[in-house]
């Protein structure tokens, strides 16, 4: 779990079941799927039946089989990537009524992308139940060229769009689902500290 003093970064308190919701939509990745299994174990038997789980991650056939077994009797869909998972989530929300509860479990980019998509449907970020699992990698927006660099595990990091070396600030935008990257050697060009792999 990410424990954070960054005031702009969301808190991910962990998944707890809303037993009243008439349907549950759960988006997770491979690591997050374990949190979903635990969620199901904390709720009654019908909770999983009312649930649709999107695993947005590349799974091996055996992993997929395990997930199907662990998450039954929930409806399970496996999408090959986070972006495919978000497209599927949007499709689903397009026709959904009130009374559903949204859950997200996995890396911070996954949670952030779910929260970001849900906002378009009028779902308040605080009503989404979230749990951080797996890698600490971050999504970073370059404040200069506005490009996003995905799956960032180091600080500083090279912007995958404009090539500047970015210091990853502890400042998070929910609207962009990203941390802020700022040129690290603007004052003294070339004065770049070594990259440290701190978001493994």
């Amino acid at each position: 779990m990410t424990i954070s003093t960054i005031k702009s970064r969301p808190i991910y308190p962990g998944l707890s079941p809303d037993l009243n919701a008439r349907s549950n939509i759960i988006v997770c990745d491979k690591a997050g799927a374990a949190a979903v299994t635990e969620l199901f174990s904390r709720a009654d038997a019908t909770f999983a039946k009312r649930s649709t789980v999107f695993i947005a991650d590349a799974l091996q056939e055996t992993e997929a089989a395990t997930a199907r077994k662990d998450l039954a009797p929930a409806t399970l869909e496996i999408l090959p990537s986070l972006s495919a998972g978000i497209v599927r989530l949007r499709e689903f929300l397009d026709n959904a009524p009130m009374g559903l509860r949204l859950y997200a479990a996995g890396t911070e980019p996954l949670i952030g992308s779910v929260v970001q998509a849900a906002a378009d449907y009028g779902i308040d970020h605080l009503s989404i139940r979230t749990e951080h699992r797996g890698s600490l990698m971050r999504r970073v927006q370059c404040v200069h060229c506005k490009g996003f660099t995905e799956n960032v595990t180091t600080n500083p990091v090279t912007c995958s769009h404009c090539g500047l070396t970015l210091f990853v600030r502890d400042h998070y935008s929910r609207r962009l689902a990203a941390f802020q990257g700022v040129c690290i050697d603007a004052e003294n060009p070339g004065d770049v500290p070594p990259m440290e792999a701190i978001y493994q």
């Binding site: 960054i6 005031k7 702009s8 970064r9 927006q141 404040v143 502890d170 400042h171 998070y172 935008s173 929910r174 609207r175 962009l176 802020q180």
Partner: peptide
């Protein structure tokens, strides 16, 4: 970057 943030968030 800050559009859409609340008082505590943009002051982070």
């Amino acid at each position: 970057f800050d559009v859409g943030m609340n008082f505590f968030e943009w002051h982070a």
